[in-house]
C-alpha cells in the first residue's frame, strides 16, 4: 500500500509540520533507483540537502529529475535505495514525509472547476487546518505571498499560466513546510514573475531545505547554493556553482552544462 504504514499516525486530527526537527540533513537520498518497466529512469542517485540549502536540479529532459522528485515526495515508490525526509523513510511512513513537504508538481496541476479560494481551502483542510479561522489565516497568508488576492474568486480554469503556477506555489507553501520540492517553479512565468518567485524562494530558504528543478541556467546562478546535474539517471555534478565554474576554468554555466550532458542526448 502506498501509505500503509502510517495509517495510525494520520488519525490525529491536528496535523502540524514538525518545524523544530533537529536534523540538518532534511533530505537524504541514498542509492535511489527507479524503473519504469524495463526503463531505468533513475540509476543510483545519492545526495543530501541541508536546511538552508537551495539545491538546483539540472539536466536535459528525461534525465530523471522529475522522477527523483516524485520519489522524494512519496508519489512514486523507489525500486531500490532509501529516501529520508526529516528522518522519516518515504517507503515506511509516507504520510509523515508528505506532511513535511510542500510540493509543486510540474505544470502545477489543480482542480480546474474550483476557485482559487476553494482550492486553497481544500488543501488547507487536507493539511489539517480544519477550523475556518485557521483556514482563512493560511489562505490569507499564501494568497498575499503569491499575489493571488485579485483572482481569489476566479475559477482556476480561467487563470493564465502565470497565475496557475502561482496557485501551485501557494498550495505548496500553505502549511509552511520545512522541505520544499519545486518542479520547474518558474516555468511559464514572465521575467518579472520569475524574478519575484526567485526572491520568494530565497527569502524563505533560510529555515527550509529546498530542491528545485529547472532548465534555466541563470536561475541556478541567481539563487541556488548547490548544483546537481543529472543525466541518464546518474548524478554527474554535485557542488556549488562557484566550485563548478572554477573547475571548468571559469566557463559559463551553459557551456559546462552542454559539455556534461550533450553526449547523452
Amino acid at each position: 500500500m502506498r501509505t500503509g504504514g502510517a495509517q495510525e499516525n494520520s488519525s490525529g486530527s491536528v496535523i502540524r509540520c514538525a518545524r523544530q526537527i533537529p536534523f540538518t540533513d532534511m533530505i537524504e537520498v541514498q542509492g535511489l533507483v527507479k524503473d519504469y518497466g524495463s526503463l531505468r529512469a533513475v540509476d543510483g542517485v545519492s545526495f543530501k540537502v541541508n536546511r538552508g540549502d537551495i539545491l538546483g536540479f539540472l539536466g536535459p529532459n528525461g534525465a530523471g529529475k522529475s522522477t527523483t522528485m516524485k520519489v522524494i515526495t512519496g508519489f512514486l515508490r523507489p525500486t531500490a535505495g532509501t529516501v529520508l525526509v526529516g528522518g522519516h523513510d518515504v517507503t515506511a511512513d509516507p504520510v509523515d514525509v508528505k506532511r513535511m513537504i510542500g510540493y509543486l508538481p510540474e505544470n502545477a496541476p489543480a482542480y480546474p472547476e474550483m476557485t482559487v479560494e476553494e482550492f486553497l481551502g481544500f488543501i488547507a483542510e487536507a493539511r489539517g487546518f480544519r477550523s475556518s479561522a485557521a483556514k482563512a489565516e493560511r489562505i490569507e497568508r499564501v494568497a498575499g505571498l503569491c499575489h493571488l488576492t485579485q483572482v481569489r474568486r476566479q475559477t482556476i480554469e480561467t487563470l493564465s499560466k502565470g497565475f496557475k503556477q502561482r496557485v501551485g506555489f501557494a498550495q505548496a507553501l500553505l502549511h509552511d513546510p520545512p522541505v520544499l520540492v519545486l518542479d520547474e517553479p518558474t516555468d511559464g512565468l514572465d521575467p518579472n514573475q520569475k524574478h519575484e518567485v526567485r526572491d520568494l524562494i530565497k527569502k524563505m530558504s533560510a529555515e527550509k531545505a529546498t530542491i528545485l528543478s529547472t532548465h534555466i541556467l541563470e536561475e541556478v546562478d541567481a539563487i541556488c547554493t548547490r548544483i546537481i546535474i543529472i543525466t541518464r539517471g546518474k548524478v554527474v555534478v554535485d557542488e556549488t556553482p562557484d566550485e563548478l565554474r572554477a573547475r571548468h576554468g571559469g566557463a559559463r554555466l551553459d557551456e559546462i552544462f552542454r559539455e556534461l550532458t550533450q553526449t547523452d542526448t
Binding site: 495509517q7 494520520s10 508519489f75 508528505k98 508538481p105 487536507a126
Partner: peptide, 17 residues
Amino acid sequence: RSGTIELLFTLPVTTLE
C-alpha cells in the same frame, strides 16, 4: 489525466482514505 493525482497523493492521505 489532469495530473491532480500527483497533488492528491502528495497530501498526507493514505490510498485507502
